[in-house]
Each structure stands twice: as structure tokens, then as C-alpha cells.
């Protein structure tokens, strides 16, 4: 389906320049994955060969699976453990982040109060201060209070860079949602909880889904903070990957892990895209 659309986009009314530009952008996005894919199916790929000297297919009798994948699915790689950790932490962070940001965004979008502008400015501070500084400082504190190396500790630090984004996205969504709808529901007799469940959340859904997706993706990609505060006790896909590539080479197993790292995000993107497109929302909010 996506490919058909892409083809149509290329064939219909695009100037040659636009086509070349689109292909370049596509290449830029897909490009980095190509060597990873090749590497994961290679048996031996030594410098300076442009392509692997020996493919896995030629050495099938020596290993049943491509070396990369054989390693990835073996328990020694700890890929399964890291994936579970990553998804679990990402999911919890997303939920907590939503719970914190929904009420905040509502207030920021609708109310005026003293110091609002500076409050909004300070919200962005976590994005400006280098992660390393936050990480080291928090590590000291967390070791002292016993949060280092715990899930709670990692979830807490993951909230630091995700909350600013989430608040911004949800504030914009709330601004698009007039008070009318909630007031109307109130007049019709709905309780606060009914309003939230039947009116506000369904109407905010596209924005909430987008914000949640983004938060999840950011969380699953945080390396430095997880690395500092996980203390090696809790591994996630990014820290696992780092341990494989820190030597400076991209071997077959690292290539395999890298590809695995992208899977949760890709699955989530596919699901949410379906979800956001669903009927009524495509048609806008009426008049």
C-alpha cells in the first residue's frame, strides 16, 4: 500500500527535480539500514571489500542461520531480556508522562497566570542542559538514595527528556480543542469523569497517540541516562548495542542487534498510523 502510494506519487505530476529530490530523501532515510542488512547476512566482510567476501548462504553447512541472527536469538546475546526491558520501561514512561502532561497541558493551553511565560521557558530546560550533566548529577543522588540500577530510577530519568516534548505536543492539541465541547457535555449532565472518558480523550486521541508514540520512541532510544543509572544491572537495547559497538567495529552480531533495536519503533509506527487515520478524525472537527 505504501509502495503503491509512493509509485503514484512518483508518476503523477512530479517534475524530474522533485522525483530526484524525493529519491534522495528516501535514500537518506533507508540508506543507513543497507550496510546493516548486508552485514547481518554476511559470513565474512573484511576491509576494503565493498561487499562481503563470503555470504552466509555459501557457508550454510557451517552455520544453520546467518551468524548475526544466530547470535541475536541465542540467550548469550541477552537481546530478549534487553528488548523486554526497553519495551517495559518505554511503556511505563509513556503512561506516567501522559498522566503528568495531560493536566499540565490543559492548564497551559487554557489558563492565564502570572509567570506563565517563564514557566514555559523553564519547561524546555531539560532539553538544553547536556544529558551527561544531568546523568552524572542524578547518578550521585540516586546511588545515595538507592535508586541507581533500579527500574524506578531509570523510569524517573527517562521522564526528564520526554516531559518537555509531551507537554508541548499536548498543549497544542488542547489549544485546538475549544472549551465548548466540555461545557456542552457538562450542561447535558455528564460528570467530570464521563466528560474526560467520552469527550475530551476521544477528541484529543490523535494528539495523545502522537505524543505517546514520540515519548515511547524517545525512551527506547535514550542511551546515556540508561547507561549511567542502569549501572549494567538493567540493560536495554541501546546499552546492549553500545557494549557491542564500543570496540569501534560493526560486526555481524552488532548489525543484528541494531536491526532488532528498530523493531519496536517500526511496529508502533505501523499501528499508530492505522489508528490515527481511522474514520472520523480524518474529517476534522466540524464547524
Amino acid at each position: 500500500m505504501a509502495r503503491q502510494k509512493f509509485k503514484r506519487a512518483l508518476n503523477s505530476r512530479l517534475s524530474p527535480f522533485q522525483k530526484i529530490y524525493l529519491l534522495l530523501v528516501a535514500g537518506f532515510i533507508v540508506g543507513p539500514f543497507v550496510p546493516l542488512l548486508i552485514q547481518s547476512f554476511a559470513f565474512r566482510w573484511a576491509w576494503p571489500d565493498l561487499l562481503p567476501g563470503t555470504w552466509w548462504l555459501e557457508q550454510r553447512e557451517k552455520s544453520l542461520l546467518p551468524l548475526a541472527w544466530d547470535y541475536v536469538i541465542s540467550p548469550y546475546s541477552r537481546v530478549w531480556e534487553a528488548t523486554l526491558n526497553t519495551v517495559f520501561i518505554g511503556a511505563v514512561v509513556t503512561v506516567i508522562c501522559l498522566l503528568i502532561c495531560l493536566p499540565t497541558a490543559r492548564v497551559l493551553a487554557r489558563e492565564e497566570f502570572k509567570g506563565k511565560a517563564s514557566f514555559e521557558f523553564f519547561l524546555s530546560m531539560p532539553l538544553i542542559v547536556p544529558e551527561a550533566a544531568i546523568g552524572i548529577a542524578l547518578l550521585m543522588i540516586f546511588i545515595k538514595i538507592g535508586l541507581a540500577g533500579s527500574y524506578l530510577g531509570i523510569i524517573l530519568v527517562h521522564l526528564i527528556p520526554t516531559i518537555p516534548y509531551m507537554i508541548r505536543m499536548l498543549t497544542a492539541v488542547y489549544q485546538g480543542l475549544g472549551r465548548d465541547f466540555e461545557e456542552q457535555a457538562m450542561i447535558l449532565g455528564a460528570s467530570r469523569w464521563q466528560i474526560l472518558r467520552l469527550v475530551t480523550l476521544p477528541m484529543l486521541l490523535p494528539g495523545v497517540v502522537a505524543g505517546a508514540l514520540f515519548t515511547f520512541l524517545v525512551s527506547t532510544n535514550i542511551f546515556l541516562l540508561t547507561f549511567f543509572l542502569g549501572q549494567g544491572k538493567i540493560i536495554t537495547l541501546p546499552t546492549l548495542l553500545f557494549s557491542k559497538i564500543s570496540g569501534g567495529t560493526l560486526d555481524a552480531s552488532a548489525a543484528g542487534i541494531t536491526l532488532v533495536v528498530t523493531i519496536p519503533g517500526i511496529i508502533l509506527l505501523l499501528i499508530t498510523e492505522r489508528f490515527i487515520k481511522e474514520e472520523a478524525f480524518g474529517k476534522g472537527f466540524g464547524n
Binding site: 465548548d180 457535555a185 469527550v199 464547524n287
Partner: peptide, 12 residues
């Protein structure tokens, strides 16, 4: 009962 100017019909 109140009918809002822009009707505030629930779009979903």
C-alpha cells in the same frame, strides 16, 4: 439546555 454558537457537536 444550551446550543452553542458553533454547535459544539462531538465530532467523533
Amino acid at each position: 439546555g444550551m446550543v452553542f454558537q458553533r454547535y459544539a457537536l462531538f465530532p467523533h
